[in-house]
């Protein structure tokens, strides 16, 4: 029965990871932009979402946004995905920004000496190295996002935890087994991500000139 929740847990994870990384790159690059307004605006987004709780953001999107703007954010599935993606996008944008800044200054100078344009320097030299630095942290955050998907049960999504709660309330004495199973389910989902993260750590050790 718990397995029925897998679809929701996995689909929410994949979608929020996709959008989370997307937001992270957009916001991370915007914070390095020369445009002050763009920089301030993304800085505001990042601080708001890093400064408050995911669960508060989730409830806010779920309850308050429809009241405030009179719009529904599509389904609850989308509310969950957007909340997780916005939250982790904010955290990971700091990694994007930090990694780009951490690429050694000599790399930019060497690229300049070869007469590359600003865009070419970014695309051919800085970015490929920065991404390698981001990988391990991105892996870690993937596991964090998996854990975060359990919150969508609170807004009525039928994920693993939701079915766990149903099972528990139908047979209280089985609660330990049920929740242990739920935990094991999550752990099995996390295992490949754990190994992926270790793999990424190996990759990132090669091919980077950091300061």
């Amino acid at each position: 029965m718990l397995a029925q929740g897998l679809t929701i847990t996995i689909s929410v994870l994949i979608a929020s990871a996709f959008f989370g990384y997307l937001f992270a790159f957009i916001a991370g690059l915007c914070r390095l932009s020369k445009n002050v307004i763009l920089r301030k605006f993304t800085g505001f987004y990042v601080e708001i979402f890093r400064g408050t709780s995911l669960i508060v953001q989730l409830f806010w999107l779920y309850y308050a946004v429809p009241m405030l703007f009179g719009i529904e954010l599509g389904s609850n599935w989308w509310v969950g995905v957007i909340a997780i993606a916005l939250n982790y996008g904010a955290y990971m944008s700091e990694i994007v920004r930090g990694s780009i800044l951490a690429v050694a200054k000599g790399q930019t100078e060497a690229a300049t000496a070869l007469n590359m344009s600003r865009f070419q320097r970014m695309r051919l030299v800085i970015f490929p190295q920065a991404v390698r630095m981001m990988l391990p942290e991105f892996g870690n955050y993937l596991i964090q996002m998996l854990k975060a998907t359990s919150l969508v049960s609170l807004i009525g999504m039928h994920d693993i935890l939701y079915y766990g709660d149903i099972l528990r309330s139908s047979n209280l004495s089985q609660a330990p087994t049920v929740y242990l199973l739920v935990l094991v389910f999550y752990f099995i989902l996390a295992l490949p991500l754990i190994f992926l993260t270790r793999k990424m750590e190996d990759i990132s050790k090669k091919g980077v000139a950091s300061q």
Partner: peptide
Amino acid sequence: RGDIGMVFQHFNLFPHMTILENCMTAPIHV
């Protein structure tokens, strides 16, 4: 600055490229 080339004290090779790619990249893209 296309007329000028420079060799640095700390080499500043691109660590994510092979040495052939290090040499080829600028002629191709620049």
